[in-house]
Amino acid sequence: MVSRTTDDYQAMVMAGCQAVCEPAFWAGFDRSSAQGFYDYFCQLTQHEPRRASMFGLPHYTWLCINPKESEDVGLAEEVLAIIPEFMKSPNVLGIGEIGLNKNSRNEIAVLEKHIDLAASNDQLILVHTPHLEDKRKGTQLILDMLKADSRIKPERCIIDHVEEHTVRMVLDDGFWAGMTLYPETKCTSNRAIDILEVYGTERIWMNSACDWGNSVPLAVPKAMQEMKRRGKNASYVDQVAYQNPIAFMSQSPRFSEPEGV
């Protein structure tokens, strides 16, 4: 939400959103130093929750250096060193969005360090899977790494941005799957509902993206509307759009179930 206006917060509240869950993200440009990340983590843990609270929205966040900035392992190590200080903040749910971008060796090295940080601090994990042509291979590499660490419990990890060619491997291995709704890349509302129809509603959720690029903060409420158009009943929609995210995030002691509308 750090690149979004108060109009977006207003619209989200009016559409019935109950909480915001904001992962550490690439800024659209490379931050030049660990100090830049320090300021960003202050923004995620102090300033943005205050901004969200002006609209009555609880704000949660995840911390990491994004895989898009993982090619510089030296910088990544400096950033990893400052994360523990922020993990104590009351709105931090875990480590994320970590993962891979181009599936390079350095990205893998930095992902390994993030997995270790999460495992040794008993944090939930939010995983970004690569874009477009890199997604299938990257998702498989990420799953293999998570499974190789015996401390990692799949039910405490959500593998985000799944599509038709990656959802099965994620669910089969016991992880949660996230479907990120975007107008062009990743998943559309209709395809997300198709995936739910094929794979069921267990350990899967949908999320809207609210980043600095072309993204739709109300994508989930729109998908809920589309589910109704397809004849899904209210409890089905509630399960997918509301109960499932609560079930996953409630595994963090920091998360409080929203009071509801």
């Binding site: 690439w26 060796r105 997604k135 060619h165």
Partner: peptide, 18 residues
């Protein structure tokens, strides 16, 4: 449209996917 290989690439020289 997917990369069919399984090994990591040596180095990422771009952030973009096409």
């Amino acid at each position: 449209f997917s990369d069919p290989t399984d090994e990591p690439i040596p180095v990422a020289t771009t952030k973009a996917a096409c």
